[in-house]
Structures are given as structure tokens and as C-alpha cells.
């Protein structure tokens, strides 16, 4: 049994993290080998041009500061998703109507931010002593002090706001794929796999926290042993649900570099977002331009002058 626990508690996490780190670096390195010779302006704002025309430096930046602003808004607030629109045929007026569709933006934003808070909360298992600012996350996240002991006695530990929000957001993101026919049509198995894997991680974590309790001290001892490369599995076991939770995380992490989850590093390498629109301000030389061997008409005439002269063909230069 110890060997099985050692495999799921130590060996598998090592393998998964190794695949995660090496895989991400490999793919970023592969992306970086593709030249991006020309800036893609994505013209959703006025380009910098004549001084009396007001340029939109966030939508169409011409310098690094603007690019940093555009990237920050994209990474932190998913600004592109704000542009999500939907088309609807209004039956009464028989008109095609375009509307903002912000639910996807809201769902994605809520999901990603609660995931970040949950990751930060979990970092306490890898840090000893626990930095006090991490306790603040836990304090604010659990500020509602929801424990509902009267109707469900075993639900004592405080329900975190992030627990509820991530579950709601993930459920929405999954239902959206299943229920909207157009989105179901373009959804691939990989799209469902990622959502279901994360949903599995979240569900197993919540079940472990409230219903199938585990030895939390054992979890931290295991985590600290693993990151200091002196791994040992607590002999008295931690609890089945911890190993289920950890296994799902390992699966997610190991799958990460092969999946669409690579949008995490990829967003920083998006040419439409991270390049200033300097197409007209500065000259861009195609990096794969090689000096081409040309044969000009003058050279051609030099080569065949005698023959052409004999045939009476007019020449640019007689000699």
C-alpha cells in the first residue's frame, strides 16, 4: 500500500510537474522560432498618424507603454472577450440585431480570478512558515462564514466565496458548450476534457474539504517533502480523497502543455496584442529575405550583344 501511495503522492506529481515545465518551455521556444515580420494592427482604434487626429493608444498602440497597457487589460480583464457579440433575428421587426454578449466574458473572468485566489490559498501548503498575507486571502475569501451546520452537520469548514464562484462559473462554461447548438457544433472533445478535468479537481477538493475529510497536516508534510526533494508519504495515510484530488491535478498539469490551456503562456505571445502598430512609422525588413541572385537586362544584353547585333535587334548600348 505504501508503494501505491508513494506513486500517487510523490512520483506522479514529479512526473506531472516535469512535463508541465519542460512542455511549456518547449512550446514557447517553438513559438519564438516563428518570425513575425509584420505588425498586425487589428484596427479597432485610430492609428497614430497626423498630429491633429486623435490616436487611440490602447486599441492601437504605437509605443511600448501602450502595448503594456493593452496587454495588462487583456491578461487581467480579458478585454477582447468584451467585444463578444451575438446576432439575433428579431421576429417582430424582421431585422438582424447585433448585441453585446458579455456572459462569456463574465464567466471566464470569474473562473480565472477564483482559480488564481484558490491557487494562492493553496500555496500555504508549500510555504513554511506561512506568510501572513496568505492568511488574509483565506480570511477575506471566507468572510461570509457560511457553514450551515443546522441543516448539514458535517459541512463545518467555512465555505469560501471562491469555491462557490468557481463552481458556478465552470458549470456555466460547460453548459454553454452543451446547450448552445452553435457552440456545441464547434466544441471538440479536448474542450470538454479540460472543463471536466478542472471541474473534477474543484469537486474533489470541495468534497474533501466538507465531506470526506483528510489529514491536512499530512498533506503539508508531504508537499514540503516533495518540494525539498526528500519525499516521504505519511505512514498513517492522508485520506483517499486527497489522492483523488492530487491525481486529477497531476492529470491536468501533465496535459497542460498539449492542450488549449497553453493560452496561459500564449496570451503573452499574441502578435495582435503584443506588437505596437509601427507599420508606417518604422521600416520592417522581412527577416527571411535573402539576397536574391538577379540577372538584369543590361547583363543579359552584354551576354548576347554580338548575336543580337547580327540579327538586327535594337540594343540599349551599342558597345
Amino acid at each position: 500500500m505504501t508503494a501505491v501511495l508513494f506513486f500517487f503522492g510523490v512520483i506522479l506529481p514529479y512526473i506531472a510537474v516535469l512535463i508541465f515545465i519542460v512542455g511549456i518551455i518547449y512550446r514557447v521556444w517553438k513559438w519564438a522560432r516563428s518570425p513575425v515580420p509584420f505588425r498586425i494592427p487589428t484596427t479597432c482604434g485610430q492609428q497614430k498618424t497626423l498630429p491633429w487626429i486623435k490616436a487611440n493608444n490602447l486599441e492601437n498602440p504605437s509605443n511600448t507603454v501602450g502595448v503594456i497597457g493593452r496587454m495588462a487589460l487583456e491578461v487581467l480583464l480579458f478585454r477582447s472577450l468584451l467585444r463578444n457579440t451575438t446576432t439575433e433575428l428579431k421576429q417582430g421587426v424582421r431585422k438582424l440585431v447585433y448585441k453585446d454578449s458579455l456572459l462569456l466574458w463574465l464567466g471566464a473572468l470569474l473562473f480565472h480570478w477564483s482559480l488564481l485566489i484558490i491557487l494562492l490559498r493553496h500555496s500555504k501548503f508549500f510555504l513554511e512558515p506561512v506568510p501572513s498575507f496568505l492568511l488574509l486571502f483565506e480570511r477575506w475569501d471566507g468572510i461570509l462564514q457560511v457553514s450551515v451546520p443546522s441543516w448539514f452537520p458535517s459541512m463545518f469548514p467555512i465555505l469560501f466565496i471562491s469555491n462557490i464562484i468557481i463552481l458556478l462559473a465552470l458549470t456555466y462554461l460547460l453548459l454553454r458548450r452543451v446547450l448552445t447548438s452553435q457552440i456545441r457544433y464547434i466544441s471538440l472533445p479536448a474542450d470538454y476534457l479540460v472543463v471536466l478535468l478542472i471541474l473534477g479537481v474543484v469537486t474533489s477538493g470541495i468534497l474533501m474539504k466538507f465531506f470526506f475529510k483528510v489529514d491536512v497536516v499530512g498533506v503539508k508534510t508531504l508537499a514540503l517533502g516533495v518540494i525539498t526533494f526528500q519525499p516521504s508519504v505519511p505512514a498513517d495515510g492522508i485520506g483517499l480523497f486527497f489522492y483523488i484530488h492530487l491525481f486529477l491535478i497531476c492529470a491536468l498539469i501533465a496535459y497542460f502543455p498539449f492542450s488549449k490551456l497553453m493560452h496561459m503562456p500564449g496570451i503573452f505571445l499574441s502578435p495582435t496584442r503584443n506588437l505596437a502598430n509601427t507599420n508606417r512609422i518604422s521600416r520592417h525588413v522581412n527577416p527571411w529575405d535573402k539576397p536574391v541572385k538577379v540577372h538584369t537586362y543590361e547583363e543579359w544584353e552584354d551576354e548576347f550583344r554580338d548575336v543580337m547585333k547580327d540579327a538586327g535587334v535594337p540594343l540599349e548600348k551599342e558597345q
Partner: peptide
């Protein structure tokens, strides 16, 4: 690219340096 990868590696290994610095890992 290398700056980005280095930042990624630092973020991934923060706990290791932290427990090495505090000496409280065990």
C-alpha cells in the same frame, strides 16, 4: 522570451527558495 521563461521558472520554484531561506522545511 528568455526573460519570460526565467520569470515562469522563478514563479514555479518560489516555494523551494522560500523553505531553503527559512530553513523550516522539515
Amino acid at each position: 522570451i528568455i526573460t519570460g521563461i526565467v520569470i515562469f521558472l522563478i514563479l514555479m520554484t518560489v516555494p523551494i527558495w522560500y523553505v531553503v531561506a527559512t530553513g523550516q522545511a522539515s
